[in-house]
Simulated assay, not measured.
Amino acid sequence: MAASRIMILGVAVAAAGGAGYIAKNMASAPPAEVVAPAGPQEPAIALSDVLVLSGDVPMGQPVDGQLRWQSWPADSVNDTFVTRGGEPDAIDKLKGAIARVPLYAGEPLRRTKLIGNGQSFMSSVLPSGMRAVATHISADTSAGGFILPNDFVDVIMTRRAPQSNSGGGSDRFITETVLKNIRVLAIDQTIQEDEEGKKVKVGETATLELTPQQAEIITVAQQMADRLTLALRSITDTQEKSADDADYLVSGNGRRGTIRLIKSGEVTEVGAR
């Protein structure tokens, strides 16, 4: 090959390499310089510290040890929430507070769900005008122990029927539903530890939410009955309000000033003195 051709070919190769290098540098622009903003950076959403539950708190139990501050979107803070800006010492102030209703972990705390220090739990959860009356129960008279606070029940009275004058024969019993759709306020049910682990001890007393008239009815029924049974109602029936109670036990056809005496199954009325 002639020397002139070799020189021309070398120059062409060198020119092509140089053009490629220049094109590569022109295509890859240097990265933009990142400049950090001066001073603290504000969050994209305004936040506010809200008092929340760090664990579940059953109804009637203290909230002490289950409270913590948590950042919350300021736009979503309700007026009933407890905020650090409004009450910075709220955790110390609420040490003796009692849960009026069940509270759950992560839930913002509301004062309306608490009972203040020194207040009675039962009188705080009892609606105005209602009465709390306790009645004896056992596993076989309380749906096997499955009746819990805030359930609704019927109260059934069972008593022996009066024997006929001729006597003889086996005992007969009369049953009657004396109260219907009654809310259970409390059950003295407890959990005990034994060798096999936790076991539930069925309570012996149920506290019911009653009107003054219903409180009188169950007081009389407790004296008359051989047994009072609580029948658990479906949750879908709780809105049904029944006025079909055993009012005859405490009033004579609606007349005040009379007392009903029940002896050997016979009912008589006498004037109150």
Rank of each mutant, 00 (worst) to 15 (best):
A206G: 11
D247R: 13
P212K: 00
R260L: 06
I259Y: 00
M224I: 15
E216L: 02
Q239V: 07
V267L: 10
L228F: 05
R256P: 09
T207G: 10
G265E: 00
K241C: 02
V220K: 12
Q239G: 15
V267P: 03
S251T: 13
T268W: 04
V270N: 08
L228Y: 06
A221Y: 02
A206T: 06
A246M: 11
D245T: 03
G252E: 15
G265W: 01
A246P: 05
D247H: 13
P212T: 06
R260T: 14
Q214T: 06
V220I: 13
A206M: 02
T268Q: 11
E209W: 01
Q223D: 13
E204M: 11
G254Q: 11
G265I: 03
V267Y: 08
A215Y: 04
D245Y: 06
L249W: 00
R256H: 09
T258P: 00
T207K: 12
V220N: 08
E266W: 08
A206L: 06
D244T: 14
D237N: 13
Q223R: 11
G254R: 06
A225R: 00
V267A: 13
I259V: 14
I217F: 02
I259P: 00
T211V: 09
E209M: 14
Q214M: 10
G203V: 09
I218M: 01
E266I: 12
G203S: 05
K241D: 07
A231G: 14
T205S: 08
G265A: 04
R260Q: 13
L261A: 13
L232I: 11
R227T: 12
R227K: 14
T219W: 00
A243F: 14
T229L: 05
L228N: 10
G252D: 15
K263G: 03
I235N: 12
L261D: 06
Q213D: 15
S242D: 08
E216I: 00
L249T: 07
A215P: 08
L232N: 08
T211E: 04
K263L: 08
Q214D: 07
R256F: 09
Y248V: 15
Q222I: 03
E209Q: 14
L232C: 10
A246W: 11
G257T: 03
